[in-house]
Design a protein around this nucleic acid. Structure first.
Length: 641
RNA sequence: GCCAGCGUAGCUCAGCGGUAGAGCAACUGAUUCGUAAUCAGUAGGUCGGUGGUUCAAUCCCACUCGCUGGCUCCA
């Protein structure tokens, strides 16, 4: 063993220390620890506790609570403190797992009764006590047998199960006070390194995420380096509430969902229906431009057809059924069947392919009650669905074309997103070979085009693997929108063929794909993304005319007519209210332009526009203004009316 | 579907054993106003639904419908 070790620091400098010096001690020597900001070290790029003694030289850097890794350590340690508190307050509560997550942490417990929101206060109080005790987090390593015995003795069956399922022979433990947890670490040096935390909620959660298992009680919380950062986070949550599409849907008069009509069934009000119509028109135009044919299938199809497609076996619990003239029907949960029948209605030649059938198809899916959520998760929705039938040789080009389509559209709406490749799920149909082909095709297009993607094992559709694009709502929750699904199986089941150059019949490949996904969900995400302040071309109301007094109404009518003639979506507010009041209301309705008309404007034959951002534009000629904003309704270079 | 919380006027919410209140909105009147809320008055509720306990239920209990946050599942 060396006596002296050499440590290099991120700035390139190095320094010698006696072997066995701890990361913490070096920090003190180098004044790294003032402000308590340092929560862990990173030796040769591996996160370690500050208390770890260094026996070998290497690269050392410090992790502060401000960094992503540091924040995660802070939160993870806070979850241990919470677990200790819960066990002290609720005797007999057993611990399961308690990781740091995106905005905080949680810990799962098994207790004879569920925790309530009121219990959180008791836990928070106990946590503060534990923090004040300044208990050190102490790491130790034990072998498998000792770890199992320890947790058996402590009556922690979940920990024992975890240890049994890990292949490792050595296990690290972290102790603080009387509490001990199985944990990889690293952790803060002491409980009093936690400065600002908040418990945010309770929820049930299945042990190991499997609904066949027992439901545990999960407590969520978050922690920050200081009170200011915590308050900032809580404020961001408040702001997110103001962008909530359910709230804006009501405030902007877009849609409603009624208990008496049914859960998960959206009712569109005039402005919401208009917004949706604009999106639908946009979709039809863009699909026709890209070589798709618009088709339309029926809402119900005979049960035998769903049996043939495999939906009955794999999707039955999500389907609605009905019976007409002694004949059973299934209400469509997907649009593919009719498209298959269109394909089969005639003999297809390789010269016909690819065939791209597009449908704004309304589908019904029986979603479990607990998952319904505003527009994001509903029971009746309309997809911008298409099915592409092509030769195996055309497959990759088709996938590439769809990805480009998605990229253009997401760019237009200014969404950031990541692509995700989902592979074969447990419940699925088709041969291994077909799945490998399909998965390989999707993956190679992503790779060849240098598109970064994550892999989600086992998350494919029952008939094939897929590439998904998830968009985030105001709270950062991801919702799947666009998806590209490769299917070698349905063409087989329906015996789809085309005649090739050799005069023989061949099997086409099929792609299922959506760009926006479900219009309902997309609108939900869109509303939150723009906070209701839609781009001009999408705004259900593009401008509102606000005359100052009654004597300006006649002139205001002229302006209104002029805007109408140019096909702008214009409204007028002639209410007997002060200007400031009506401006405020128009602003809350997120109307892009307010056209103010008073004596000055009438005299100079103009209008005084004001933007919803609160910017006053100079008094100007009506025609000039309308001409100027025509460019704002251009989408992909085309004016959208 | 599971866990927890919640359903009171159009909206946001207070009240919690003795059958209901506020602000905003609505309506009426006055005010005709220059860039984010003019003033006054009026009206509005089988307290989500169905049962039960009680002399008495918006309040307690059960069931049910719906909503919210999670879990599982999914566009």
């Amino acid at each position: 063993m060396k006596d002296v070790i050499t440590i290099t620091f991120p700035d390139g400098s190095f320094q010698r220390f006696p072997a066995g010096i701890t990361v913490q001690e070096i920090a003190v020597l180098r004044n790294e620890n003032d402000g308590d900001g340092v929560v862990a070290g990173k030796v040769n790029n591996r996160l370690v506790d500050l208390s770890v003694p260094l026996l070998e030289g290497g690269a050392l850097e410090y992790v502060t609570a401000e960094s992503e890794e540091g924040l995660s350590i802070l939160r993870h340690s806070t979850s241990h403190i919470m677990a200790q508190a819960v066990q002290e307050v609720f005797e007999g509560a057993q611990v399961a797992i308690g990781p740091a997550i995106a905005d905080g942490f949680y810990y799962d417990f098994d207790y004879f009764r569920p925790f309530t929101v009121d219990d959180l206060e008791l836990v928070e109080k106990k946590m503060r006590e534990i923090i004040n005790e300044a208990l050190p987090f102490i790491r130790e390593e034990v072998d498998r047998e000792a770890a199992i015995k320890l947790f058996q003795d402590r009556n922690e069956p979940y920990k024992v199960e975890l240890i049994r399922d890990f292949p490792d022979e050595k296990f690290s433990l972290y102790r603080q006070g009387s509490f001990v947890d199985l944990c990889r670490g690293p952790h803060l040096p002491s409980t009093n390194s936690v400065k600002s935390f908040r418990l945010t909620g309770v929820a049930g959660a299945y042990w190991r995420g499997d609904e066949r298992n027992r439901m545990l009680q999960r407590i969520y919380g978050t922690a920050f380096p200081d009170e200011e950062a915590l308050n900032g986070y809580l404020q961001r949550l408040e702001e997110a509430k103001r962008r909530d599409h359910r709230r804006l849907g009501k405030e902007l008069g877009l849609f409603s969902i009624h208990e008496e009509a049914g859960a998960g069934l959206v009712i569109y009000h005039p402005r919401g229906a208009l917004l949706r119509t604009i999106l639908e028109d946009f979709e039809k135009r863009e699909h026709l431009k890209r070589g798709y044919d618009i088709v339309k299938g029926p809402q119900i199809l005979k049960l035998e057809l769903w049996e043939k497609s495999g939906h009955l076996d794999n999707y039955r619990e999500n389907m609605y059924f009905t019976e007409v003239d002694n004949q059973k029907y299934g209400l469509k949960p997907m649009n593919c069947l009719a498209h298959m029948l269109i394909y089969k209605s005639s003999i297809r030649s390789y010269r016909d392919l690819p065939l791209r059938y597009f449908e704004l198809g309304t589908v019904h899916r029986h979603e479990k009650t607990g998952v319904l959520h505003g527009l994001m998760r509903v029971r009746e929705f309309t997809q911008d669905d298409a099915h592409i039938f092509c030769t195996p040789a055309q497959l990759k080009d088709e996938i590439k074309g769809i990805i480009q389509f998605v990229q253009e559209v997401m760019g237009l709406f200014d969404f950031s997103y990541e692509m995700e490749l989902s592979t074969r799920p447990e419940k699925s149909i088709g041969s291994d070979e077909a799945w490998e082909n399909a998965t390989g095709a999707l993956m190679s297009v992503l790779q060849e085009n240098g598109i970064p993607f994550a892999v989600d094992e086992g998350a494919g559709a029952f008939y094939g693997p897929k590439i998904d694009i998830k968009l985030k709502d105001s709270l950062g929750r991801a919702w799947q929108c666009a998806t590209i699904q490769c299917d070698f199986t349905l063409p087989e089941r329906f015996d789809l063929t085309y005649v090739g150059t050799d005069g023989e019949r061949h099997r086409p490949v099929m792609l299922h794909r959506v760009i926006l996904g479900a219009l309902e969900r997309f609108m939900g995400v869109l509303i939150e993304h723009f906070g209701g302040a839609f781009p001009f071309w999408l705004a259900p109301v593009q401008m509102i005319i606000i005359p100052i007094a009654e004597r300006h109404h006649a002139y205001a009518d002229e302006v209104y007519q002029k805007a109408k003639m140019k096909k702008f979506r214009v409204e007028k507010d002639y209410r007997n209210e002060k200007l400031g009041f009506r401006i405020r209301e128009a602003q809350l309705k997120k109307i892009p332009y307010m056209l103010i008309i008073g004596d000055r404007e009438v005299d100079s034959c103009g209008i005084a526009p004001r933007t919803r951002e609160g910017k006053d534009l100079e008094c100007q000629n009506v025609e000039d203004f309308l001409g100027a904003i025509q460019s704002e309704r251009k989408v992909f270079g085309e004016e959208v009316i």
